[in-house]
Amino acid sequence: MTYVRELIPPRAPPALAVRSLAPARVAGIGVLLLWAALAIALVFMMINGWDQDKFQRYGPRYLHGLWTTISLVGLSVILGAILSAPIAFARMARNKVLNGIAYAYVYVFRSTPLLAQLFLIYYGLGSFRPELEAVGLWWFFREAWYCGLFSLTLNTAAYQAEILRGAIESVPRGQHEGAAALGLSKRNAFRKVILPQALIVALRPYGNEIVLLIKGSAVVAIVTVYDLMGETRYAFSRTFDYQTYLWAAIFYLAIVEALRHLWAFIEARLTRHLKR
């Protein structure tokens, strides 16, 4: 026996501690099992209730509605982004009049339901037909698709304006001072230093807003726009088959999932210099 073994005699390893399942863990496992059972049941019902004739009859209509939804949301996001820029700058302006107008716009469109805004535009402005014809705008407001586009654009512009304003104001003051120390003008400093950092901060909120707009765009089906939900309502009114709404949910889920992966890729590309 060595001198070290005499000073520190060997001991048996400690017994492994038995971890008991906490109530929260048990509840989480139970919820996961419940969701798994529901998913399996839905797949089983879809397989048993599959109707080839309905698929051939209404499948093209679903694709048409899917394209209508994508185009409607895409145009709304682009137009809303263009409209949100001056609103965001007005919210940050020192001029109380501009700030008040921008604040009122954002407050109204963020505090009222999208459905109410759509009804006010489609049905409310539709009651002013003589006045709209006099100014040459009746061709726009008589079409449900244009009214849906207009309401979605105004709604998302309010949210995007707040996203952009918050992102710009989140850039540290030291970045402004550093750009000024380098001799950059305020315009160049904003374009080359402040805005790129702000857009990275705003990237995820923008993605969330697009997802919410995709799901919220289903309200345009109420004013006879045959988007994805509109075509689903049409198919259900002819078949009274609940699976028509199930397929619509699958399409919406596919759109959101594709957008999520696209946004994750864009974020990874734009922030690769921040990762070590």
Score class of each variant (00 low, 15 high):
Arg238Pro: 13
Asp53Val: 10
Ser127His: 02
Glu231Ile: 04
Lys96Ile: 11
Gly230Ala: 07
Phe190Ser: 04
Ile194Ser: 11
Phe128Leu: 12
Leu137Thr: 00
Leu274Met: 13
Ala189Pro: 10
Val43Leu: 13
Pro113Arg: 04
Glu257Cys: 10
Val4Thr: 14
Phe140Leu: 05
Gly174Trp: 07
Val108Cys: 07
Cys147Arg: 10
Ala157Cys: 01
Ala90Lys: 07
Thr271Gly: 02
Ala85Ser: 05
Val225Phe: 03
Phe141Arg: 03
Gln117Ser: 10
Thr2Asp: 15
Val135Asp: 08
Gly207Lys: 01
Asn155Phe: 09
Gly28Arg: 06
Trp35Asn: 14
Tyr242Val: 09
Ala248Ser: 06
Leu213Ile: 01
Leu137Ala: 01
Leu114Gln: 15
Arg187Ile: 09
Gly216Glu: 00
Leu184Thr: 14
Ser84Leu: 08
Leu7Met: 04
Ile101Met: 07
Arg91Trp: 10
Arg260Lys: 14
Pro130His: 02
Gly207Met: 00
Arg129Pro: 08
Gly183Met: 13
Thr153Gln: 08
Glu177Gln: 11
Ile40Thr: 15
Tyr234Pro: 06
Ala37Arg: 13
Lys275Ala: 09
Ala41Ser: 14
Ile87Thr: 03
Thr153Ser: 12
Leu228Lys: 06
Ala181Leu: 15
Ile163Thr: 08
Trp139Phe: 08
Asp241Lys: 15
Tyr245Gly: 15
Ile8Phe: 15
Glu177Met: 14
Thr224Ser: 05
Ser20Cys: 02
Gly30Val: 07
Ala17Asn: 09
Pro23Asn: 06
Phe190Asp: 06
Ala202Phe: 07
Pro60Val: 15
Leu246Pro: 04
Lys215Asp: 03
Asn188Tyr: 13
Pro60Phe: 11
Arg5Ala: 14
Leu114Trp: 08
Val26Phe: 09
Lys54Phe: 14
Ala189Trp: 03
Tyr103His: 02
Leu212Ile: 04
Phe140Asp: 06
Val223Trp: 02
Leu152Gln: 00
Leu98Gln: 04
Cys147Ile: 04
Ala258Ile: 12
Leu120Ser: 01
Tyr122Pro: 01
Leu7Cys: 08
Ala104Asn: 15
Gly230Glu: 02
Thr239Ile: 10
Pro113Val: 00
Val77His: 12
Ala180Ile: 06
Arg129Ala: 12
Ile222Asn: 05
Met92Glu: 07
Leu34Pro: 08
Leu152Trp: 01
Val225Ser: 05
Leu195Ser: 12
Ala268Gly: 09
Val193Lys: 02
Cys147Phe: 06
Ser217Thr: 00
Ala249Glu: 13
Gly74Phe: 13
Lys192Tyr: 09
Phe190Pro: 01
Pro14Thr: 04
Tyr105Asn: 06
Val18Tyr: 05
Ala258Tyr: 11
Ala179Pro: 09
Trp138Lys: 02
Leu75Ile: 10
Gln243Asp: 14
Pro113Ala: 01
Ala36Ser: 07
Lys186Arg: 11
Tyr107Cys: 15
Thr156Tyr: 00
Arg57Cys: 11
Ala12Val: 10
